[in-house]
Structure formats: structure tokens, C-alpha cells
Design a binder for these strands. Structure first.
Lengths: 235, 235
DNA sequence: CAGTAAGTGCTACCTAAGTAGCATATGGTT
DNA sequence: AACCATATGCTACTTAGGTAGCACTTACTG
């Protein structure tokens, strides 16, 4: 690993805190780190599918990275997932070798460990115990995808918005991770548009559920929010 | 394995034709079969999440099984995936042990090999090489989920319908696997309702793209269909 | 500190999708 | 043959969500 900007032990401790890799023994850990380069990207750096980015494999150390699709006809974007610390990408092209046409954009300054799918696959061949630890990670990602899918089909936008806020609260009932996003980004995340999301945010404000400042959202009444979430349900 | 209704070698050949299990050696194959029971279910048999069905693990030998969510408030259903021969379920609860609230219904008379998640997990512990072969299967399932998700957010219903037909054609440009579904089931699959899907089916008929009989859909002009599909695109 | 880009709030309008209801057709069952 | 559940086709209507446009505000940048 190139250690120009971050030291080796720091990276090691990152991996040891990552569910996918924490179970590895010291030797495997060292050889894994040998495959990666440490990189930083500025906020708003974008990677398009066409750039061949999907043939690389990243472990996110800090910052948020969104994966998204654009509709060229209409002027719309959909954020498929919001990746953060301890997430990896792109799992799909890594695991089945096929192309994955999706784009990425850094929502913050981010730090990643970077390698190619080819190198990563070679390492996995030698350390097959890694496959098992990928299982719950993939299962969790699938759960999120499936929940979003069902939501987007069956739930209206205020419901999706409420659920999205709810899903991003911590134990103190405060909004985390998405509290500094613009209404535009929120819209991309729940599959709608800025104007519509803004409309419903006004309703939530009137109802006393949330408070809004420029690029900041706060939950004002958690009780009301969870009420709004559980009004509509499916099984 | 209980071999009351199907013989052992028949099951073995099923497993050898299944991408998930074909790579196993003879011993592993035999011990795997030892975990399962052979079962048949009649068409329309339904399993609800509440029944604890999700703690079982199935390999589908023949027939179609849909996994779906119902919205109790509105009167709607969404078919998350249509599983068939060589598919397994439920991967999610198997791999991370958490509840997966989803329902199942047999669209045909179906045959399955059936075991509990607990037994299957125990077997996997002893045969960890299986984890690797699960990878591309899961990756593929994730791709399908992600594509549906993006479609449901960004594409309108005629586009989704056209894509859905397109995705279910064989090398002879004939409709397979979904050609005998009612408009109601089609609607569930693309995230809409019977009346709306029927509306667009009329348009497709007028345009000469498809032909429809009671519970049968045929592609009349594949060229026109693929044109309709590629009109709208995203990346 | 002036200029500019980005974010927000809101009005007015348009349209695809959903809903309700009914007529007709089909195929299987008694 | 008569019956009945299911499937389909179609009309009329409602509505949530999307679109366009603009005013105002905030924060950054040269």
C-alpha cells in the first residue's frame, strides 16, 4: 500500500473496524492492505459508468458516496444508495464480473482504499473465508433495496419522506447522516423531485414534525414522525 | 431425504443442474440432499410472512413462486420477484438470520426441496465452499432488484410494461414464463394496477406490438417492442 | 463588499396514473 | 345446458405528483 498520506496502522485499524474484514487473521489483513491504494476525493467528484469506474473496488473510510442513475430524457436523478464508512463498492461487478452501469458522486470529501476488481478477486481466491463474511453484508444491502422498491411502488411521497427521516435517526431521536442535504438530494433519495418534496416538507413543518434551515433538517417531534410512518403499512 | 414421491437420482440431477450446487463434490451433494424433504404445492397455495415460512429454505424444482408485499390500506399488491426452477428462497433470512417479512404464492403447481434455515446453515458451516457460489447468484438478484427500483422511479408504465415483456423473451423473440399471466398479475409485477395496465395493453395492440387472448400474451412485432423499450433510457 | 451560484418557498398549471363501475366474454363445473 | 367465477375492455372521474417559473435568501468567492 502506498502510505504517502495515511499511515499503515491507521488503515489496519480501519479494516479491523469493518464487519467485512474484521474476522481476518493478521497475515490475510496484511496481504489485503497490500492490494490497496489510499486515495482522497474532493466533495462533488463524480464518476460515470462510462469511465470504467465500475471495474475498481473501493472501501470507504470516511465521507459519503452516492450511487445513482440519471434519466437523460427527463431531467431526473435517482439515488440508489448512499454509501458511507465501512461500505464497499462495487460489489456487483466484483462478484459476477459483469458490467454495472451506475454512476457515483462524492457528497463529502471522502477517503477510500482503492484496488481493481481483478486484484480483489485474486486475493479472495487465496482467502476464501472472505466469501462468508460478504453474505450478511449483501443480504443487508438486498433488504434495503427491496424495502425501497416496495416503498416506491406502494407508498406515497409523504410516507416515503417520513420513513426516510425515520430510518436516519439515531438513539437520541436525532437526524443523522442526511440532515445536511438539500431538498434536491432528498428528492433524489426518495424518488421524487425538489418541488414536490419541498411541498411535503412544508406540511411536515406545519404539523410540527420537523424544522428546517438552509441545508439542515431537524426532527422537532419524534412522536409525530413515527405516528406518520406507521399510519400506512404493508406486509 | 424422504423419497416417497420422487426418486433420489432425480433430485441429484436437479442439484447438478443448479448453478448454486453443481460445483459440489459427490459427498457434499449427498449430505446436502440428506437435509431436504421433497414437497409439492398446489397452484395458488399462499404462505404469509406471519406463518413463519421465512425460517425455511427452499430450492424450487419446478413451477413459479412469487414473493410479494400487500398494502392493507389500499387494495394493492406488488410482486417483488418471480422465482422459478433453480431459484432458492429465502436467501435473506438464511444469510443474516433476521426476519424477512414477505409473502409467497405458487403461480403453478410447484415442486420444492425444503429444509429449515437452521439445518441449511449448519450444512453450510461444514461446506464453506458453498458461500462462493452464492455470490454470483446474490449479485444477479441484486441487479434485478436495482433495475426494478430505478425503473419504478424513473420510467412510466408503458415503458415498464415494454421492458418487462422484453426481459421475458427467448432467443426466438417469443414471450416466455409470463405469457400466461392475467393483466392483474402483470400489473402486480410492474408496480401498477389492472385497469392501467389494460389501458396500455390496448395501445400496444393498436400499435401492432402485441396480441392478446384470455390469459395469453404474444409478441406480434419484436422490432416495434424493442424500439419502444429503447426510446427512454437512463444511465 | 459586490457579484454570483445555490437553496428555498410558493403559485399556477398539466397529466399520467389510479379508482369506480359496469358490460361482455370465456372456460370450467355440476 | 345452466351456472358461476374469472378475465377483459372501456367510460367517466379524481387526484397526486410532476413541471414551469419566479421571488427571495443565504453563503461563498473573487
Amino acid at each position: 500500500m502506498k502510505t504517502t498520506e495515511i499511515n499503515y496502522t491507521e488503515c489496519l485499524s480501519h479494516l479491523k473496524g469493518n464487519k467485512l474484514f474484521k474476522h481476518l487473521n493478521e497475515d490475510a489483513m496484511v496481504s489485503l492492505l497490500g492490494c490497496f491504494n489510499y486515495k482522497k476525493w474532493k466533495k462533488s467528484t463524480a464518476f460515470f459508468h462510462a469511465d470504467g469506474i465500475a471495474n475498481n473496488f473501493f472501501i470507504i473510510l470516511s465521507g459519503r458516496l452516492k450511487s445513482y442513475h440519471i434519466d437523460l430524457n427527463k431531467d431526473r436523478e435517482y439515488t440508489v444508495s448512499l454509501l458511507g464508512k465501512n461500505d464497499v463498492t462495487d460489489v456487483l461487478s466484483l462478484l459476477d464480473g459483469a458490467e454495472h452501469d451506475i454512476n457515483f458522486e462524492a457528497l463529502d470529501d471522502i477517503e477510500v482504499l482503492c484496488t481493481t476488481n481483478i486484484k480483489m478477486r485474486a486475493w479472495m481466491e487465496i482467502h476464501p473465508e472472505i466469501y462468508k463474511s460478504f453474505m450478511p453484508y449483501m443480504a443487508n444491502r438486498m433488504r434495503v433495496l427491496e424495502a425501497s422498491l416496495t416503498d416506491n411502488v406502494l407508498a406515497d411521497i409523504p410516507t416515503r419522506l417520513a420513513r426516510f427521516f425515520m430510518a436516519n435517526t439515531d438513539e437520541n431521536k436525532k437526524l443523522i447522516n442526511i440532515n445536511d442535504l438539500s431538498h434536491d438530494e432528498l428528492a433524489n433519495l426518495i424518488g421524487s423531485t425538489r418541488a414536490v418534496v419541498n411541498r411535503h416538507i412544508q406540511h411536515f413543518k406545519e404539523a410540527g414534525i420537523i424544522e428546517v434551515e438552509r441545508k439542515h433538517t431537524y426532527i422537532k417531534n419524534f412522536q409525530l414522525l413515527s405516528q406518520r410512518v406507521y399510519e400506512s403499512n404493508y406486509y
